[in-house]
Nucleic acid binder design. Structure first.
Lengths: 245, 245
DNA sequence: GCGGCATCAGACACCGATGTTGATCAGCCG
DNA sequence: CGGCTGATCAACATCGGTGTCTGATGCCGC
């Protein structure tokens, strides 16, 4: 078709006029570079180049490098929220979920972790970028995705399907960061989609096993059992509320 | 002692001639800056300034910025190895450990995790630096500290104190990264040494609880139990399924 | 068809970081 | 004590990134 795209010479086919599109293109490029170099290593020049956008245009969408980084981390978190929970963070209210839907969202076996792992396995850049962000942030728990996950798990802990005495914060740290680092580790071993899926399955299976049975055989650690049961016995929920306000 | 240190005017009291000392001073400064900005954010200028050393001197010890970063990550890993396992990585052989010593080193309840958490809680810069390094590295599992931990845990898994069917890699990812990120999270909440110790205790207790009992009540997930027990071994699962009541 | 605006190209001053080089001075050894 | 080695330092040239500005160009809605 005879249209734009000056063929031979390095002529640049000027980008079609689409502010939102370019913005997200920039964010996406910034995301992948963020994953590679971390927040401190991000340069507007590289981002613009990768996004196929003039540097000046980038500066038109984000006044300063710092703002670009900020916007990018927020965007990454948003992507993760949508992929994991299927809704945006900026609560457009959205009708209250039905009870069974509630249970599905809350129960750790319902697929939230599976979703996250699979998504992270297919988008390791986002996972890595999120980890960088969380690691660099002075307040990791302020991240929207973090808060979302934590809240969901907190609700699960209240149900009678959960073991008593769970420490929500510790669990959140373990699961979130483990779930996102696993693809980083696995990346070195899996090339094909099949291998990746297998590794994702391996992770979720081990999480399931650990969640059900733990790592140690209780009968081998009577003293530890006694101490822990003393901690959680009297009134499980009260014990937790003491520290996880 | 009354010596050196020209007092008033900005006169620089030329550093005493001490190659090894300056080298480790540089490494230490690089470590704390690495924790703050990540590998890509590290600048030789800042390192030299923080270490109280001329930039040129730094370049004499490490030919290039990249080499400095590399040496620093190695140094951090070394520090962690010594803190956690009490010996250096560059195996000077060192006599074989006695059987009970072996058990102490291998058993997850013996204090390895406690050691690491406490150390990480008191040296969050090192923890953060290590996480940055692991996150940025294409082969996280090549880190000496990582390998050391993994090997120890692998030996534990072979003992009959361990649950059957443990996935060593998944466990290593979870524990290592969780243990080091916990201080980063906790840092935002704890100021005094007492608070820090309390948070460290809270983490190890939850790890212990999780290792013993897991997160979910098996009786609520019969299908999952069936699938997992089929995966591992037919026999031992029944024993622990009764523990939770 | 026209005006507004998104996009691009290029240039500028400024800054900080990188490596390099030659001078300088501390500590050791004869 | 005097010289030598090399650890430490100050200064230089260079490069790349930032943030800003100007003018040109084309796309889209009115």
């Amino acid at each position: 078709m005879a249209l734009k795209k000056a063929k031979s010479a390095g002529a640049k086919p000027r980008r079609r006029r689409d502010p939102d599109g370019t913005r997200t293109a920039i964010l996406q490029a910034a995301g992948t570079l963020l994953a590679k170099d971390g927040p401190q290593g991000l340069s507007v020049s590289q981002v613009a180049q990768l996004a196929g956008v003039n540097r000046g245009t980038a500066y038109q969408h984000f006044q300063t490098r710092e703002q670009l980084v900020e916007a990018t981390t927020g965007w990454v978190s948003e992507q993760l929220c949508q992929a994991a929970f299927g809704k945006t963070t900026g609560g457009k209210s959205s009708r209250k979920p039905s009870p069974e839907e509630q249970a599905r969202l809350v129960d750790p076996r319902s697929g939230v972790i599976e979703h996250i792992v699979e998504f992270a396995m297919e988008n390791p850049e986002l996972a890595r970028a999120w980890l960088f962000h969380v690691l660099a942030s002075p307040q990791p728990a302020h991240d929207p995705f973090w808060k979302m996950y934590r809240q969901r798990f907190e609700e699960y802990v209240k149900t009678d399907s959960a073991q008593p005495g769970i420490d929500v914060e510790v669990h959140t740290v373990l699961m979130l960061v483990g779930t996102f680092l696993w693809p980083v580790w696995a990346r070195a071993h899996a090339r094909t989609a099949k291998e990746r899926q297998q590794l994702a399955l391996r992770f979720t299976e081990e999480i399931a096993r650990l969640s059900l049975y733990g790592t140690m055989r209780p009968e081998k650690y009577p003293k530890l059992v006694a101490r822990l049961s003393k901690r959680t016995q009297p009134k499980p929920v009260a014990a937790k509320s003491g520290r996880a306000k």
